[in-house]
């Protein structure tokens, strides 16, 4: 960890995760997880199924609040403010921390209304302003040209890859600072996946991005930092090239060489 801090002196910490423990009833899904996520970087969370990587991701926008019997201890600071504080407005938090899910989940409404849903939630009503936000968001998601003539068509008529980019556009429309992607390409074909990877890479300059992925090549292709989890524990966290070329922990090495998981 030491050399990591050295390298990162010039970047500022966006998310500080401190001693997170998470329980589903009596099952402990996260064990004392602590690490820092840096601004304008892509951080990948990897590990075998059930290792807690998605659970941790869902802690960062408090989506775990929706799960009954889920108990969380610890602190997550975003911009030095603990999101688990009592006076935190969860809806405001989720506006700042966008999320894209494993399966594309556009609402059954038009493409336009899907993107405008978030801004409308947060009180934007003017048609011109909404038009501008929808256009900008779709442009950022590389799909304005594809859909500009059929904004009023149902979002469910799009292909899987387009739906997922629409969901990214929808997340961008509320102007978040952080974007969480929960295995966002695992349900897509290789062409759509590479489009979305390009897109994520391009978004890095404006956003802090955290991805959960099963695909280790994907982590090497796009992530600046990679965190490896095993049975709820953070095993190793370092620059991506270090994790994949000279892992410090034998368990990381076993995982990336495919010997378990």
């Amino acid at each position: 960890m030491n050399n990591l801090e050295k390298i990162q002196n010039n970047k500022s910490i966006k998310v500080k995760i401190k001693n997170i423990n998470l329980f589903y009833d009596n099952y402990q899904a996260l064990k004392d997880v602590s690490f820092d996520i840096f601004e304008n970087e892509i951080t990948a969370l990897i590990g075998p199924s059930g290792c807690g990587k998605s659970t941790l991701l869902r802690c960062i926008n408090r989506m775990n609040d929706l799960i009954p019997n889920c108990k969380i201890n610890g602190i997550i600071d975003i911009d030095s403010k603990n999101i688990y504080n009592k006076d935190m407005d969860v809806n405001e938090l989720r506006k700042n921390v966008g999320m894209v899910f494993q399966k594309p989940n556009p609402f059954s409404m038009s493409i336009y209304d899907n993107v405008a849903y978030g801004p409308r939630t947060h009180g934007i009503k003017k048609k011109q302003q909404l038009d501008r936000i929808v256009k900008e968001s779709l442009e950022k998601a590389y799909m304005w040209e594809e859909v500009k003539d059929r904004l009023n068509k149902s979002a469910l008529s799009l292909s899987g890859g387009q739906q997922q980019r629409l969901c990214i556009a929808r997340a961008l429309a509320v102007n978040p600072k952080i974007i969480l992607l929960d295995e966002a390409t695992s349900a897509l074909d290789p062409t759509s996946t590479s489009k979305i990877e390009d897109l994520i890479n391009n978004l890095k300059k404006d956003y802090t991005i955290i991805i959960v992925t099963h695909n280790m090549q994907q982590a090497t292709r796009i992530a600046d930092k990679t965190a490896f989890f095993l049975s709820g524990e953070l095993v190793e966290y370092d620059k991506t090239e270090n994790i994949f070329s000279k892992p410090q922990d034998i368990r990381t090495e076993k995982y990336i060489t495919g010997r378990f998981g």
Binding site: M63, L93, R94, F101
Partner: peptide, 18 residues
């Protein structure tokens, strides 16, 4: 109604009523 719709809406910062 799939749960993914609910998650999608909450993740955008919508409250329960909306």
């Amino acid at each position: 109604v799939p749960d993914s719709y609910r998650e999608g809406s909450y993740a955008l910062g919508s409250g329960k009523i909306r």
